[in-house]
Amino acid sequence: MTALLLDRRQLLLGGAALLAIGGPARAEASTVRITVEKLAFVPEEITVRAGDTIEWVNKDPFAHTATVKGGWEVAIPPGKTGTRVAAAGDDIEYYCRFHPNMKGRIVVSA
């Protein structure tokens, strides 16, 4: 059921996804990478589709997190990578629990 919906949506929105993500139209979920460096999420805002994998690559020697207030949290250990499969409800802002001045935003495209 979900796969069916996803397929149809991709057919309809192939062009929109191309514009939003800037890559070729994809038949399957992809990985969107965020670099965590010098206490910042780069890019600060990403656009994904539900099912895409979000990958935070930590280049700092400090432990960070991607934390949603009242929601999920991904640990991003120093020099390592944290991941999450984007859900439909992930259209949100997040921050680092250890350094709340670090902020990022996830936009889920239809």
Partner: peptide
Amino acid sequence: LKLFQGHQQH
């Protein structure tokens, strides 16, 4: 400075 500002907020 960014690190310590984060610590202050934490």
